[in-house]
Design a protein around this nucleic acid. Structure first.
Lengths: 229, 229
DNA sequence: GGCAAACACGAGCAGTCACTCGCGTTTTCC
DNA sequence: GGAAAACGCGAGTGACTGCTCGTGTTTGCC
């Protein structure tokens, strides 16, 4: 926010000098990011042309490049803002697990928050899981994925304290991948059908994880726990 | 195979006259498809340039267009051949389910065959699940998906005979999506780790489906069966 | 051998893309 | 009010794409 006014003697310090954005500029940036989100969402990153983004935003190509050095920077800025909001969301979604909380509730709470976030920002899915994203966004996605993974591992190790670290990591990976797959189904449906898929996802995760946690208190039948040796 | 020799009077019948391929030509086609598979696999469909495919195959761009009318046709031919082999594979994988076969075995058999196929043909995943595929391939993928879906539904309805049709369809969708997600994990690992993920996928599916089938013979505890009304 | 068709080449064409540049307009700061 | 900077424009540039075409070589058939 509080940018220093243009300094004397600071002109050619770094390759990129911080431009003094006016309110108008900030508005344009938001406008352009919104347009980019729309275009990325409907056509994917590579197929989205900067001219199309500018047109969608109602400005000229030249104006777009007044605020972003290149196409990748648009996706990066968009990704940054989404990841920022995402970190807040999943911080709440995964962090506070009361020791007594049953698995079913923990899963339901996490799933509900993540699904809600992804439904509100469909671009996020397109940007993060597209196969044609630029290297920088991929890094960001990997970082976010790693963070999520370790969070899920912590959550899991609370429910399955006597499992090998490798098994916990693998289980967490499976959970995230399954979530991603189900998210695609959820985003592809509306209303009641969408909610049915959400319920299905919760059931799926709970049934997958329950036998692992069951070792804590007298394994209740079902599929036998299979520990990889 | 047995192509009729060039017919007299059949010259300008349709817009496309069937060229008499020589053995050399068939070899080039196989060569080009192999190169295309490699390039598609590593860069995706849109990013793959026809010049790059030709270069990978060691021929000139003009030669490529002697056998394929356009870039899409390359992907289509490749997809056709893969789908053809796929149909044979999953025909065996899903068709014959003995009435007494336990769920665990049926799932394991299907998963093993599909995983094997996808590991032998990594292009298949890239072509079918890429977001930038041309319309024609998408149709083919949708058709294959629909076929697989109905097969899985038939298989499922044998294990859960007293479920609503909508629930069965949804369950089948979830199974396929989960398979797809796990496939990505499997393809991303090697050796023992890969096998561990395969086992995880089987467990996941069995645990997901077991409570649904349990209604047949005195529900053995675990997560209660939740029927959507 | 000879001829037509299939095969092979690679420079080049039209089209699209990300991005630039010169110039005019609006805002900010004194 | 006036200078400087930020904003805004859109035709244009170079690179790359899918694809063509004229020309030369190899193959199959008589």
């Amino acid at each position: 926010m509080n940018e220093k006014p243009v300094r004397s003697g600071n002109d050619a310090a770094a390759g990129e000098r911080p431009r003094r954005r006016q309110a108008r500029g900030e508005r344009r940036i938001a406008q352009l990011l919104e347009a980019a989100a729309s275009v990325f969402c409907s056509t994917g990153y590579t197929a989205a042309s900067t001219n199309a983004i500018a047109r969608e935003a109602g400005v000229s190509p030249g104006t777009l490049y007044q605020f972003f050095p290149n196409k990748e920077a648009i996706a990066i800025e968009l990704g940054d803002r989404l990841v920022h909001e995402m970190r807040e969301t999943y911080g709440e979604a995964l962090a506070p697990v009361e020791p007594g909380t049953p698995l079913e509730e923990a899963v339901a709470a996490a799933v509900d928050r993540f699904i809600d976030f992804n439904c509100r920002h469909p671009v996020f899915f397109a940007l993060m899981h597209g196969p044609d994203i630029p290297g920088r966004i991929a890094e960001e996605h990997d970082a976010l994925h790693a963070t999520l993974l370790s969070r899920v591992e912590v959550l899991l190790s609370r429910f399955m304290p006597d499992a090998a670290a490798g098994d916990v990591a693998r289980t967490a990976q499976v959970c995230l991948s399954v979530y991603k797959a189900a998210l695609e189904l959820v985003l592809g449906h509306e209303g009641a059908e969408r909610e049915a898929y959400v319920r299905e996802l919760k059931d799926l995760l709970v049934r997958y994880l329950t036998p692992l946690t069951a070792a804590r208190a007298g394994a209740p039948a079902g599929v036998p726990l299979r520990n990889t040796p």
